[in-house]
């Protein structure tokens, strides 16, 4: 990168004179700055004098005020749209499920039910099945779940755009691995398989977790524009309205779990480790009560 053309910053400041520097305007200014730098470099590379290059690049931009005015018009429009109500919007944007998809969902669900049922009956010894077919039935159920998840995500719905095929298949594969892994763990638990087979369970579950984590981390927006506009317009929840309630909630949460873990430690060292879940359950129950009280408790008088 060659030396920066100092005129860019001066001209950009001039273009933004008299504009109120809202975060939005500041954002746009910084975005424009980097683009101007690239454009000026291009002009200079083609032999334009630095001063001319900067002036020309800024002139090509036109009036900055127009760029900022545009968004106000857009937000006014979506605001008016949101005013007609979520239900009305949902109705107007309604997408019916495709008949083929409905039929497929029934088939995939049937696969899951049949696979899980037969595998369970085989593993518990109700049906006299060798272990091979039991694993195969587990595979049938997992395949059903994988197809169900992948197929459902690839559909367009009223609120969401369809997920691209590859990503939807990824989620399907992760679900398949998860159910297969958990199924193996279940078979080991029911003593239908030797203990070392828990390795397969671990492999499946860990692979599923890795895949889910990757897909989740790289997930982008899939909501339709009208849903986003409607969500932006929803009334704020209690924690946004009353920050002190949110702070209180945070402190209570910390107290509950510190006490719970202290109780677990005490129980483990005094009466034995199998009492630890009792403390956990108590902590969880206290947490739920707190949550209910915080979210739906009596409002502070205004």
């Amino acid at each position: 990168m060659n030396a920066m053309n100092p005129d860019i910053h001066r001209l950009l400041d001039e273009a933004f004179t008299g504009i109120e520097m809202t975060p939005d305007a500041q954002d746009l200014k910084e975005e424009i700055r980097a683009n101007l730098v690239s454009r000026v470099e291009e002009l200079e590379a083609s032999g334009t004098a630095p001063a001319d290059a900067a002036r020309r690049a800024v002139a090509e931009l036109g009036d900055v005020r127009e760029l900022l005015g545009e968004t106000d018009a857009v937000s006014a429009r979506t605001g008016a749209q949101a005013a007609t109500g979520y239900t009305a919007l949902a109705l107007r944007n309604k997408v019916r499920p495709k008949p083929g998809f409905v039929v497929r969902v029934v088939i995939w669900s049937a696969l899951i039910v049949v696979g899980v049922t037969l595998a369970t009956l085989g593993a518990t010894g109700v049906l006299p099945l060798p272990v091979g077919p039991v694993i195969a039935f587990l595979g049938v159920a997992s395949t059903g779940l994988g197809l169900l998840v992948g197929d459902a995500l690839a559909q367009e719905t009223t609120a969401n755009h369809p997920m691209p095929q590859n990503r939807a298949s990824g989620y399907g594969l992760a679900s398949f691995l998860l159910l297969y892994g958990l199924g193996f763990a279940g078979l080991v638990g029911l003593k239908a398989l030797p203990v070392w087979c828990v390795v397969f369970a671990a492999l499946g579950v860990i692979a599923a977790i890795i895949l889910f984590a990757f897909l989740g981390a790289t997930q982008t927006n899939r909501h339709k524009a009208w849903t986003r506009a409607a969500h932006a317009d929803l009334p704020p929840n209690r924690f946004e309205q009353e920050p002190e309630t949110a702070a209180r909630f945070g402190i209570y949460t910390a107290v509950i779990w510190i006490v719970t873990f202290a109780a677990i430690a005490v129980l483990v060292f005094t009466v034995g480790w199998w009492w630890a879940p009792v403390a956990f359950v108590a902590g969880f129950a206290a947490m739920m009560l707190l949550l209910a009280r915080m979210m739906f408790g009596p409002r502070k008088s205004r």
């Binding site: 990168m1 910084e30 980097a34 683009n35 690239s38 369809p162 691209p164 982008t220 927006n221 899939r222």
Partner: peptide
């Protein structure tokens, strides 16, 4: 970028692809 202002990059979302 450290020089010449930070660039604002755009990435297409799943909704955008659809």
């Amino acid at each position: 970028e450290t020089q010449g202002g930070r660039r604002k990059y755009y990435r297409i979302t799943d909704a955008g692809r659809a």
